[in-house]
Design a binder for these strands. Structure first.
Lengths: 205, 205, 205, 205
DNA sequence: AATGAATGAGCCTTCATTCAT
DNA sequence: TATGAATGAAGGCTCATTCAT
């Protein structure tokens, strides 16, 4: 079971991903050459291309690792039998939590996804869409059950939430003043303040 | 007010900026060559380098046009003698409004600012910082006056607001279902719901 | 009027073609790098790719120059109002003569045409086919007029003639013992000996 | 025959030769990677390099198999006590016959022999030269005995014959309209028509 | 002001070959 | 014998930039 839990990526492929991730995050996809990556990894061009068809595929893998993870978490939240407010809370908190695990992935994701080649881009876009729609569904459900304010437009509200949380890739730092959990709680507070009806605020939360 | 005075949008420099803006937005800074730009403009390499020292400077100019504009608007809002909620509203609405004017600039800004060369990057960062701090100041003021919830952490709340609005560069479309003004109102509603104390909600808004 | 007559290819494109031609002939298409070509030409990679989309296009141009020339000559022969034996003679002699002009082109052509990319290959194949069919047509005409032996199979005879002449790219040398005209006469003699009926041999030739 | 002692055509070395032969014929020596070959063979890089020192040696072996065979056949023809016309016929027919056995070898031979490394190239060139000289010798003998036309230049005539026959690697197809034997007869007819004196045509053939 | 041919450093990628297992 | 991960030199090509005209 190479890596993950142990945090020790022994095999080359993992090592290339880890290394390039941090390089991409700092210098951007176009600011890092394959040469730089392999030098930093202590491997060779051939070693790189033995594991990845192209630099582009590496970019895809980085995207996919993160989006797949976050999608899974959201699906678990959705599947839970809980109130919309609880589900929203679970989604937000799980999403925020991936910033601890996958901050570099996310940065690269938002910074560079436009440079994915079509074949890869399509695969990623499908997953992004799924995620978005799960959030929309929770908002819709909340409105229907009368716990979320009826005047909320589903899509723009959803995108606002996504924006608020996503944006943290620009400023969140692991060793910052607040833990990721505290930040998650603040987001949940801000968001539920916006969504819940006055009625629901009393019972919920 | 750059250029504007002369009122001649057909002059080459403007045309290069406009063209490259749209190309950058669609294909990314690294997905567009100087050659493509000059071909699309109907000019030549020489024409380009007569007006810009480098492709990098062009990226800077695009950044600067937008950030300068939005900073000016925010300063006007701050300078107004109004309540924090009003100021916040003015800032949000003016910010949202620039998406109509400067959507491509903003997209390029968020997508590519990491590729600015140091000399340009410093100039841009200073202005971004100013903008952020104006928002923090309004939140702080609102808390001190007791109209914003005292438990709000200034910085994270500020970044949440910025994230919510900024993110619209990913999805806002000029010819979408809602006008920019309607979207602005929704943002203001969501944000003020989050910020205002129950007390203030009654009087304000 | 760059080059040709004067034999002085002053402009870069001509110079690249000439140089690479001789390099390809000696070392083969795969045995010559673009770097070698530009070094030999005293130009640069950029200079090369300013004139050719790819190394492959250069190969195509070399093919096309020669095949276009030889096709034109054959069409002139065909168009002439002459006996089949005369036409055959004209075709052979004009074909043989291009070895003086285009020997390197021809060598490269036969050695490397399999490496042409599909788009270029199709264009070339069409012209080759035309040429072949003109020869077949002359043989057919000769048989119908009773001057060529009736038992000759048109296609194999045609391919035999083509093979005999084409093969000289393997051994013909400009400064060899026999001039190109003498070689042409020998080919014509051998071929007409094979084609003509005994009857026709007396009147013809 | 070619199993060398073991007689087992399923042994790896044979399989590599067969496979690469067909790949080379279709895509050219440079259009086929060692990886492609071993994949197609169901073996591995190690398997390949166990049997061949280099990809280049494989090319040599392919050349050698064919040229050795054809040389042997020609030597048998020469050794026979027959008239020059008969010898020429035997040579042509045996040469043509190898197209059935060794068509792919021959295609690769003519297409790629320039890419042989010096050490291999020398070995091959010696055998090619022998073959050529045997044909020249027969023509010379025929002239001396007065059965071939005295005005024929030995070398060019010889090269013409070689060209005519060799060229069939470009168009011969095993399942074509004519059998290899019929094609051989046509070649013999065309060639002897060219070579024989009028006198000899009556008695010979 | 404008042109576009020319430059050349640097990029991504390929592939024959090696070697520990 | 056989495997296939790893190597690294070398190749084709790109593109921001320059400069003579």
């Amino acid at each position: 079971m190479h890596g993950r839990g142990s945090g020790c990526p022994t095999d080359l492929k993992e090592r290339i991903i880890e290394t390039s991730l941090h390089l991409f995050e700092e210098y951007g996809y176009h600011g890092v050459t394959v040469n730089t990556i392999v030098k930093e990894c202590g491997t060779s061009k051939g070693g790189f291309y033995h594991h990845f068809q192209s630099k582009d595929e590496l970019l895809f893998v980085i995207h996919d690792v993160f989006i797949t993870y976050v999608l899974t978490k959201a699906q678990e939240a959705i599947a839970a039998s809980a109130s919309p407010a609880k589900k929203m809370k679970m989604i937000i908190k799980s999403f925020v939590k991936v910033f601890d695990l996958y901050k570099p992935h996310i940065s690269v994701f938002y910074q560079e996804s436009m440079y994915l080649k079509p074949q890869y881009e399509a695969a990623i876009r499908r997953k992004r869409k799924s995620y978005k729609e799960m959030i929309f569904a929770v908002i819709q459900e909340g409105k229907e059950l009368g716990v979320f304010r009826p005047e909320l437009p589903v899509e723009i509200t959803g995108m606002s939430i996504l924006g608020m949380v996503n944006w943290s890739y620009k400023w969140y730092k692991k060793d910052g003043e607040k833990t990721i959990d505290e930040i998650g709680d603040i987001f949940v507070d801000l968001i539920l303040q916006s969504l819940l009806t006055d009625q629901a605020k009393k019972t919920e939360q």
